[in-house]
Structure formats: C-alpha cells, structure tokens
Computed example of a mutant assay.
Amino acid sequence: MLRIHGIPRSRAFRCIWAAEEAGLPYEVVPIGFASGFKLERPLAINPNNKIPALEDGDLVLFESLAINLHIAKKAGAPLMPSGDDESRVLQWTLWTATEVEAHVLRWGYNTYLKPPAERVPAEASAGKEALDLRLAVLEGELAKRPFLLGEAFTIADLNLACVLYAARANGYDLARFPKVVAWIDACLDRPAARRARALREG
C-alpha cells in the first residue's frame, strides 16, 4: 500500500489524485502546517522536511511530481504511456515545475496565501504577467488536442492541472484562456479527481 505523508490541502493532493487515478490502495499519513508554512512536526523520511513524501514498500520518495511519475509508472498506460509519449509526459511535467509553478506561487503568496499586511501587489502582478505568458503557450497547445498528449488524459495533465487548480479556485483570471479553462474543467471533473477533491475541499 502507498503511504502518502501530508494533508489534502497541500501538494499531497496531487499524489492522492494520482493514486486515485491509478486505482492503487493508499493511506494518507496526516501531517500539516504550523504558522509560517512550517511543518507541525519533523518528517524524518524527507531530508528537506517537506510534504508530501511517499513510502511504497522499501522505496521512499520526496518531490510531489516525482512521486506522481512513480505512481503513474506503476499503473501504466494510459496514465503513463510508453515510448515517445512517456518522454512527452516528462517534458510537460518538467515544464510544469520550471515554467509554471514558481509564477503561480509568486501570484498566490501575494494574493491570498500570506497575511494581507505581508502581500506585495507588484509581486502578484509580476507573477501574473509571467504566468499569463505560459498560459498563452498552453492555450495554443490545447487548441490542437483535448489533453496535453492527445486524446487521452495522462499524469502530465494531472501534474499541470494540480498546479493551476488552487490559483483558479482563488480567483486567478483565466478569461483570456478558454481552452485552458475547458481543459482544467475536464481534468477536475474526472471521477478520481472528484474523489481527491472531496478530501481537499471537504
């Protein structure tokens, strides 16, 4: 059984959703946050002392996107396809990490995550400006196909949709990107996503 350390209202949500999509048994080992975005207690199996972390038998992993790639590989296609499409999954997952997430966080910290007195509107604007450039790229790609790789939903879609999920839920303006909106809706309306979201949103 997969053991996912974290709480649904954190990056562990991605791993919970991935486990649901994969149809693999899992348990969530709850560990949340104290003030200042610090863990409420040390997480010995992650040298970075961050969540999530995964135990899968003798294997211990940190980094949520790496965890998700591992879960998807256990499930196989269509969640993790083979051949050239596996490389495309890696491409979009790394794009999520390097081109998207930092800008989502820059906007988010200065819009809703930090206390109001600590928010810097110029930082929020800069984050949105940078993210909108990436969303324009995504809009163009999704004009060609319903999901990142084609007709089938893969772990690449899940990884990117998770990063954009909280921003959208907290008022990020996506009006310029109707294809992105339709794609997020399609991702988040999947049965596995709804089960994971019930844990996060409930």
Rank of each mutant, 00 (worst) to 15 (best):
K38F: 02
L61D: 02
N48D: 11
N48S: 12
N49T: 04
P47W: 03
V29D: 02
L43A: 06
V60N: 06
D58M: 10
I45M: 02
G36R: 10
G36N: 07
N49D: 12
F37Y: 15
D56T: 15
D58G: 12
V60Q: 09
K50I: 06
G36S: 09
E27L: 12
A34F: 11
I51P: 00
V28S: 02
N46F: 00
V28C: 05
K38M: 06
L59F: 11
D58S: 14
G32F: 03
L54N: 10
P47M: 02
F37L: 14
I45T: 00
N48C: 06
N48I: 12
N46L: 01
K50T: 14
I51A: 00
R41T: 13
F33Y: 15
S35M: 08
I31K: 08
D58A: 15
V28T: 10
D58N: 12
A53E: 09
F33A: 05
V29L: 10
V60L: 13
L61P: 04
D58K: 14
F37E: 10
K38S: 07
I31F: 05
A53G: 14
S35H: 08
P47L: 04
L54E: 08
F33L: 09
A44I: 01
I51S: 00
G32M: 03
P42N: 04
L43E: 04
N46I: 01
S35E: 14
N49E: 02
L59S: 03
V29N: 02
I31N: 00
F37W: 15
P47R: 03
L39I: 05
P47A: 02
G57I: 06
L43K: 05
L39M: 04
G36I: 12
G32P: 03
G36H: 10
A53M: 12
P42V: 09
L54W: 12
N49K: 07
P47I: 02
Y26I: 13
P52K: 07
S35A: 15
Y26V: 11
F33R: 10
E27D: 14
G32K: 01
E40F: 03
G36C: 12
R41S: 13
I51W: 01
V28E: 01
N49Y: 03
